[in-house]
Write a protein that binds this DNA or RNA. Structure first.
Lengths: 334, 334
DNA sequence: TTTATTTACGAAAACGGTTTCGTACACGTA
DNA sequence: TACGTGTACGAAACCGTTTTCGTAAATAAA
């Protein structure tokens, strides 16, 4: 079969423990013996079994990323950031997609309880369930770092962006463009980032003496067809907005799709701002004004914090790091 | 610490083996004992250690995806397809990014030799190295399924798309639009998919009695800045093309970027076709004519084949499955 | 009634490592 | 000479499972 530490021990007439120690560069083993072992191991191309040691050491060198979806510029860039750190540290990244399904999220987290990974990076899915499954993992002493989408009521490390402020700035830009009826496409009322963005939006309206019209706040779900219907209906209603904010990338693209179908002209009839990290936003028709999240950096920072926690097991106070987004004005709000 | 099979055995006054068998629903254990064990395990919320069993069983329930990058619609959709199958099968997906770096790819594959994963899905990176590191894994009896980017000289399961034909159709469409100087942006000469696409392109030119101008075939690399320079230079040269094919998504977006910078008007001055699975191709300015690969389905199929190989260890003859791409005509070739 | 067979469980080895502990030997020291 | 000390290695326990094998009791077959 495959070459193990036992193969080496037998072939070199040494004890298993000697080989193990030598490969771990222990001082207990003489330089000459070490050399013999290293060279022989190299000759046989010995690679230690990935998980044998993990039993005793309780380390797998695996971390998990749990995200709603991957076909979204924010998350794919965040994965890039995370992976860049993990690769340096020699860690392996297991990716889980929840597809915004809390039950799936629960079941995934449940499986991670017993040693599959050393820690995890979590961007929670939308949906109105409880957070027990997350607290449960924290109880099991598995380090969790939230990124982008977190749970307010859980004390853990978090890497977020300035959602409230971004919502505010987005609305304010539209207000400055003389828009009077600014719609907001929300994904889920239970997601703190969406709520923060929404609160920022509302605050901007209030500050500028524009009354908040709940009919302009559209509560989308994970059902694309029904979202499309809702937005179409809005655009055809008497309450037709003159501007709209997409709180996540998918919804922003939905706006473009509906405008295309209904021949609504952006930005003439409707100004659009989207939360998105799409690098090709400027090639869209029209180019899209975005709140661009620092996706790569959020991922990178979250991973860095996770590794810090993995290295020093002293449980330090939890941190929340905010990395600001940028408002980039383009054609859709001109 | 965490609850193990041993905890249960001790608490219920049973042997460890009895508990293990019961949890595995073995016929050796009486229904009553099983019930006791199941209920107690449930009460303690027992989750088996992920890797303890893997030692003996030589199964980890992990598979690896090795891809050049994730911020590309093809790969992120392929991940979706793979993940959808893996989740059903109860498998966990470790994602590795090579960033088109063969050395990285080699090092990743090397680590996978000893039991970290049960099998892998591979889309090779570009670069002119050897394939020894892949053969090496196959020798170690680790199932490998290539998807999208494969190695011609390795006998393994492959899930590909009709690259040659797609290259042909792309070029032919441009020829039919009366284009005379059709450029082709190649990523790497060592990548079979790119070569196939390029061959299809050349065949179409030959069939339509257009001479092949090697100056119009631009060999890009992984260096974005130098790619940008090369394409800019092409557009400003005397050899300026009237049409161009981007052989991968990133290069297609590069075309848009350069056109924007140089104020080249698409499709008036230059018609563009890109290989891409971007679902927002129709929202680009102008909307992009694409060769759309069935990314999700390729991923899904590749995963399905991998699991088939994992289930029946009989080594059946290797298959190559071709799932055709679609040419979708949009504004950039009008 | 005796002998095979089945049932239901336990003991122990094994998977591939790490780690603790024991010990033989060569030293330096009192 | 007797004693501690350090060096270099081996034996064995252990991590949490699975699996093989052994066996006592119950049941079926002769």
């Amino acid at each position: 079969m495959s070459v193990t530490i036992k193969t080496i021990a037998k072939d070199l007439n040494l004890a298993i423990s000697t080989v193990s120690k030598a490969l771990g560069d222990s001082h207990e083993i003489s330089p000459e013996t070490k050399k013999r072992i290293f060279e022989y191991a190299k000759r046989l191309d010995y690679v230690p079994n990935a998980y044998a040691g993990s039993l005793k050491k309780r380390k797998t060198a695996n971390i998990a990323i749990i995200i709603p979806e991957v076909a979204d510029s924010f998350f794919s860039l965040a994965i890039n950031g995370i992976e860049s750190v993990a690769q340096k540290k020699g860690f392996h990244v297991i990716v889980y997609l929840t597809h915004e399904d809390q039950l799936k999220e629960q079941s995934i987290l449940h499986q991670l309880k017993n040693g599959r990974v050393d820690g995890l990076l979590l961007s929670v899915s939308s949906g109105a369930f409880s957070n027990d499954h997350i607290k449960y993992l924290l109880n099991a002493k598995i380090p969790v770092v939230f990124f982008d989408r977190s749970c307010d009521d859980i004390d853990a490390n978090k890497v977020l962006t300035n959602d409230f402020e971004s919502g505010y700035l987005a609305a304010e830009l539209l207000i400055n463009k003389k828009c009077k009826k600014i719609s907001f496409l929300s994904l889920s009322d239970d997601l703190s980032i969406i709520n923060q963005r929404l609160k920022g939006y509302k605050k901007a309206l209030v500050d500028h003496k524009i009354s908040i019209d709940e009919n302009l706040i559209i509560h989308c779900t994970n059902d694309e067809i029904s979202n499309h219907a809702k937005v179409s209906k809005l655009f055809q209603s008497a309450d037709k907005p003159d501007a709209i904010i997409g709180s996540v990338e998918k919804l922003t693209m939905l706006i473009y799709a509906v405008c295309f179908d209904l021949k609504v002209s952006i930005p003439r009839d409707l100004k659009v701002i989207g939360f998105s990290s799409l690098d090709i936003a400027s090639f869209l028709n029209p180019s899209l004004t975005t709140i661009t999240q620092p996706a790569f950096e959020i991922g990178k920072t979250a991973a860095t914090i996770l590794f810090q926690e993995l290295e020093k097991n002293s449980s330090e106070p939890k941190r929340t790091i905010i990395i600001p987004s940028k408002l980039i004005e383009r054609g859709s709000t001109k």
